[in-house]
Design a binder for these strands. Structure first.
Lengths: 156, 156
DNA sequence: TCCAATGGTTGCATCATAAAACCAGATTGC
DNA sequence: GCAATCTGGTTTTATGATGCAACCATTGGA
């Protein structure tokens, strides 16, 4: 396989995630889906991407269980693409990407939007990684361990 | 430009982040860098990727200010690639990707490692998005607002 | 029935990716 | 100080992905 170097069988969870959503468009499609877009035309319009690419990406996202196809909510015979729980679970990834840009982008003045708490209209806090006991952790405060027992069967 | 649809000028911070680290290998390189790898050969060995691609990615990451070239720490005349603060700032993105895989992967038993608090050896908590007042926020609890005043000059 | 919009697919040109061969400078052994 | 070897790449070549435009099918409306 000379093609895309799929990481599907990789043991690294980061690689596995990238295998599903690591291409240029998937996260942007999910971003639009999270902000309420559902129709092919809406995605195409908002993202300005080629329709064949959009078509392929939507199919891949459906295959990965991130989007699901549903009948149109407006009563028409068309179909819609709605996020599954797995799809909505990408929200922290998008927030992390956003906050990284906000913190480190060379031209932050070009960033047009801010993410706010809907109830108060105030900016959200930065994502924080904490230990079980609540201590704030940086990358240097963490390490990787092999996953413990494979837990051979089900509830033991 | 028929090429890669650069999102560099896009106003969406997610797109801007993807423009820098949205390809297949960059985040994996950063992941290795965060776990202590610094040399070309180390990256190539750990990731098993083609050397020309690695070379191009390292150059791009340096151009984006995510990695910096430093003289080798072992006294040899070779060079090393070390993370800048901007590079270390991607840590939450990697954690978010990891936790998404852990939560939603179809075959979680294939995931070989867990991220633990170095001090205690205990798994870290899930990333949480909170409002200014500490309320836990899901995607539905947030919305996007236009960035307020462009703040025309410098300190006003 | 005709017409326009929606929701795609197909064809073709171009670009990126990947593997392997090749190569230059650094290091080491002698 | 010269050859052997290792490190860190670049070049070459094949192939897959991307992007645009054109085309097609179905829906919806007059």
């Amino acid at each position: 396989m000379v093609k895309r170097t799929s990481f599907e069988g990789d043991a690294c969870p980061v690689a596995r995630a990238l295998d599903a959503i690591g291409d240029w468009w998937s996260l942007l499609i999910i971003r639009e889906a999270l902000s309420g877009q559902r129709r092919f035309g809406e995605f195409q319009n908002k993202l300005g991407m080629a329709k064949n690419i959009l078509s392929a990406r939507l199919r891949a996202l459906v295959d990965h269980g991130i989007l699901a196809i549903a009948p149109a909510s407006d009563g028409s015979a068309y179909q819609e693409y709605v996020l599954t729980p797995k799809g909505r679970g990408t929200f922290p990834i998008l927030v992390a990407l956003r906050q990284w840009s906000e913190a480190f982008d060379d031209r932050p003045e070009e960033i047009a939007t801010i993410l706010v708490d809907r109830a108060k209209g105030r900016p959200v806090k930065k994502l924080e990684l904490r230990a079980e006991d609540g201590r704030l952790l940086s990358s240097a405060d963490t390490t990787l361990k092999p996953r413990p027992a494979p837990r051979r069967r089900s509830a033991g």
